[in-house]
Simulated assay, not measured.
Amino acid sequence: MCRRRHFSFRTEEAYIHWIKRFIFFHQKRHPNLMGVSEVEAFLNHLAVDRYCSASTQTQALNALVFLYQEVLANPLGNMKGLQRVQQRHRVPVVLSISEVKKILDNMNGTCQLIAQLIYGAGLRVNECLGLRVKDIDFETGSLSVRDGKGGKDRTTLLAKQLFVPLQKHLVKVAQIHQTDLNRGAGFAAMPGALYKKYPMASRSLAWQYVFPSSVLRDWSQGQMKVRWHMSDSTIQKAFKLALRHAKIEKHASIHTLRHSFATHLLSAGTDIRTIQLLLGHRSLQTTMIYTHVIEATKSVISPFDNL
């Protein structure tokens, strides 16, 4: 049912996770034998006993509503006893320009290039790792993000300083691809059933991932050997190590570079609507959170300094 609706793989994983947790919480009873009261008991357990966040409880609720409404065709009624976790509005952690430079200087190789792209284009980690060779346009200085969050496509900017290192990296990608072709592999995993419609395209360089995995894997029931993109855990670990070496005491992750991209553009006077388009936010309210970051860091003089 998730795949019929073209949900992302992460959404599918999350829904299956919460449905399993729900079933195990009720001693492996079948969901058909349960209803609103059991769903409320599970969600209240997450809120009261597990101290989960509002977004976690909402994700679990969405998974169970989807299960009963779409899979079991038995929609849940009104949940009057549901204890919702209060939503907290938090300002995202943002790195200064000098801090970003320190972190990037403490990285090297492919991980450094990925981090530079994420900061330079405001990409999510999976959006960056999911880039194909055909998605990079050096002529216009832009990147095409395919199937981003919410299944949306968008275009964002490509920093001019990354042209040369990215072109050198793509030469290595082409060499890896040629080696795979010589071994009878060289296929790229394509969305949907495009590999059936365009069988030759899946072996072209254009469809290869910009940041390929180091190993070949079976795909399409073992009929093809494909090279997926590298794991996001690799870049996460490299970023954490660079953060420690740069001696920056902030609770930051690789995603913080995306927050920093938006905040630094806003500080430079870029229109908030333009930033929304570059980030791929559906609502302008989501992008407006970065205005709070700017307001919190304005050069306001404390009255204590005037004593």
Rank of each mutant, 00 (worst) to 15 (best):
Leu33Trp: 00
Leu170Ile: 09
Ala47Tyr: 08
Leu241Gln: 11
Lys28Met: 12
Gly222Cys: 09
Cys111Ala: 10
Arg217Met: 07
Leu67Pro: 11
Ser202Pro: 00
Gln236Ala: 10
Asn62Arg: 14
Ser55Tyr: 11
Ile275Cys: 05
Ile136Glu: 07
Gly141Pro: 11
Leu46Glu: 12
Ser204Gln: 09
Asp232Arg: 10
Phe211Ala: 01
Ala246Val: 00
Leu82Trp: 12
Asp153Lys: 08
Gln221Lys: 15
Trp219Cys: 11
Lys152Asn: 03
Lys160Tyr: 05
Ala159Phe: 05
Ala193Arg: 13
Asn106Met: 00
Ser231Asp: 14
Val125Ala: 12
Leu166Pro: 13
His264Ser: 05
Ile235Tyr: 04
Arg10Asp: 14
Pro92Met: 04
Leu170Gly: 05
Val210Thr: 06
Leu157Lys: 12
Val293His: 07
Val94Thr: 02
Ala238Thr: 00
Thr11Met: 13
Phe66His: 15
Thr297Gln: 14
Arg5Pro: 00
Met288Ala: 15
Ile19Pro: 09
Ser231Cys: 06
Ser96Gly: 08
Ala242Asn: 03
Tyr15Met: 12
Gly151Pro: 08
Leu72Met: 14
Gln57Ser: 13
Thr11Lys: 13
Ile248Ser: 06
His281Gln: 09
Arg146Val: 11
Tyr51Trp: 09
Val125Pro: 02
Ser55His: 13
Val65Trp: 13
Lys247Trp: 08
Lys80Trp: 03
Asp135Gln: 05
Val36Asp: 15
Tyr15Phe: 15
Lys101Met: 03
Phe304Asn: 02
Gly35Asp: 06
Arg90Glu: 11
Leu123Ile: 09
Gln116Val: 03
Thr58Cys: 12
Met200Ser: 10
Ser144Asn: 05
Ile289Leu: 09
